[in-house]
Simulated assay, not measured.
Amino acid sequence: MAHLLETERKDRLVARIRRIAGQVAAMERAVSGDAPCSETLHLAAAVRGAVGGLMDELVEDHLRAHVAAPGLSDAQRTAGADELATVLKRHMR
Rank of each mutant, 00 (worst) to 15 (best):
G49A: 09
D61N: 04
S32P: 03
A21T: 05
S32T: 04
L43Q: 15
M92K: 15
A65T: 00
A26H: 06
R93Y: 01
A25M: 06
R19P: 02
R90W: 08
V67E: 08
A25Q: 09
H62N: 11
V24Q: 15
S73L: 09
M55I: 11
E60H: 08
G71H: 13
E83P: 02
R9K: 07
G49K: 09
K10C: 06
V31Y: 01
L72Y: 08
A21P: 01
L5R: 02
A65P: 00
L5V: 04
H3N: 07
V87R: 03
E39W: 01
V31D: 00
V51Y: 07
I17V: 15
C37V: 12
L5N: 04
I17C: 15
D82L: 10
A15I: 14
S38T: 06
A30K: 00
K89I: 04
G33I: 03
L84S: 08
H91R: 15
D34K: 01
Q23H: 13
L84A: 09
L5P: 00
V67P: 05
T78I: 02
Q23M: 13
L54P: 07
R12V: 12
A44M: 13
A26C: 06
R9C: 04
A26D: 12
V24K: 14
A44R: 14
V14N: 02
A65M: 02
R77Q: 10
C37Q: 13
A69Y: 04
D11G: 01
A25G: 05
T7M: 00
D34Q: 04
R19G: 05
A25F: 02
C37Y: 13
D61I: 06
H42Y: 14
C37W: 10
T7P: 01
M27A: 13
A45F: 15
L58H: 09
R19C: 05
A21V: 07
D74E: 14
